[in-house]
Write a protein that binds this DNA or RNA. Structure first.
Lengths: 238, 238
DNA sequence: GTCATCCTCTGGACTAGGTCAGTTGTGATG
DNA sequence: CATCACAACTGACCTAGTCCAGAGGATGAC
């Protein structure tokens, strides 16, 4: 009974080398947990632990009751530019799509009032969308807009780029922006939208956007599948 | 047998409300997994799952064979300024410390050559350090410096701020910087240095630093405990 | 051809234990 | 009073299963 490393580490190693060698390619399905447990002569719990640590590394991902898949390369994303998502994705030779989940006129939660420097009990437009990369949902985003700046926006086709709509319909251009990144866990609607289990690690990018005159216009809360993105910031853009 | 939510979710809820209410304060130890499993009438595996999801959320953290603790507030960190770590921490009314792990003259790995725009097989100074926040190790960092720019630096006291040493001894000041953030998993030395299990989620901040003339001077790879930090970037610093 | 139905495969959630290896406090010993 | 050995406690790691619900394909009625 050798114990140079743990069993979990051995399974992890075996799978990573398969991926690195190209035998398991991006998007391919791994054998089922049951098959793997037989293959490695262990229990599903041990297999699951190995799989979860590879998931944490961003090498593989899980689709609920469908199986485990090799993770595609990360999307490179600079949150300083609120660029058109589709454009950014296409520049990286990938395919993007956006789906609107809901559109509402809500009373702002306290944390939102603070974030957008609003008085208590202000109203806001809330837009919830999911964005996919090569057919896989990678981000859930919640936008909150100041209603007085965007009359009638909720009637437009919001599966387009908001940046584009702002420019074309409201003559608003982005200026400064400010963002925070925290590594946290999916829960509730976020978990559901990203088809993740409750408690899966995700990356939350919260951004407050200012217009060309320095006034706050809206905020975004982007919940990214942690393995789908590489955040890249340059203090002096080329 | 009620099944409004899962058992895991109930345990998570019970613990979060205890933390929110202040009954469990920052840094306090939770009961052991065994105690909790008795308390909630379930098995250790289920308890562990709940604990891990709270860990992913950043509410609690685990110390190897010591127990689970309530996580302290996150450090706010702007990687665009390579500020003095100690200064930054103290501005946030926290306590910082740095420990040097190793100091070496190495042959650069291919990925490093690329990152620092070096020819193949270049030599580099490598400095490895861990940094603590209020006594808890929160970050493992690996610096790679161009040797020709820093003669004799390996003989200095490297538990100080590198930024300070650069300024005082070499008259080098930071200009532009560029950084990437990916959410990944701890392994090997990183896991050990941060006293994390293999496969625990961490935040890797990779930075390339340029001097006041725009020449590359060094790079850092910072491996952060994911629950210890909030990355915060403002495109127009106040 | 279309659509509902069923059946199989998947991971999700859970039980009920076990051994091992660090960590820590306690108490005896010098 | 310091120090060292030891026992108790901790999470790490593992076994060997059960039952459930969603996803997806095959099948068959219309």
């Amino acid at each position: 009974m050798e114990r140079t490393t743990t069993q979990t580490a051995q399974i992890r190693l075996a799978l990573t080398s398969q991926i690195n060698s190209g035998l398991l390619q991006s998007g391919m399905k791994l054998p089922s947990e049951r098959e793997l447990s037989e293959l490695f002569g262990t229990t599903r719990i041990t297999i699951k632990e190995a799989l979860q640590s590879l998931e944490a590394e961003g090498r593989i991902y899980c689709e609920d009751r469908r199986g485990w898949f090799v993770a595609p390369p990360r999307l490179v994303y600079n949150p300083l530019y609120r660029s058109h998502f589709h454009e950014m994705v296409e520049r990286q030779q990938r395919q993007a799509s956006t789906r609107v989940l809901s559109v509402r006129n809500i009373v702002a939660a306290p944390s939102l009032c603070q974030e957008l420097e609003l008085p208590a009990l202000s109203r806001l437009f809330q837009i919830r969308r999911v964005r996919s990369l090569d057919g896989r949902v990678v981000m859930f985003v919640e936008h909150h807009l100041k209603p007085e700046r965007f009359p009638g926006i909720l009637e437009l086709d919001l599966s387009q780029s908001l940046t584009g709509i702002y420019q074309q319909h409201y003559d608003i251009h982005y200026g400064r922006s400010r963002f925070d990144i925290v590594s946290t866990a999916a829960s509730g609607e976020v978990a559901q939208a990203l088809t993740l289990g409750e408690g899966s690690p995700i990356l939350l990018v919260s951004r407050v956007n200012y217009d060309q005159h320095g006034a706050i216009i809206d905020s975004d809360h982007e919940y990214w599948r942690h393995d789908a993105v590489r955040i890249s910031v340059d203090s002096r853009p080329g």
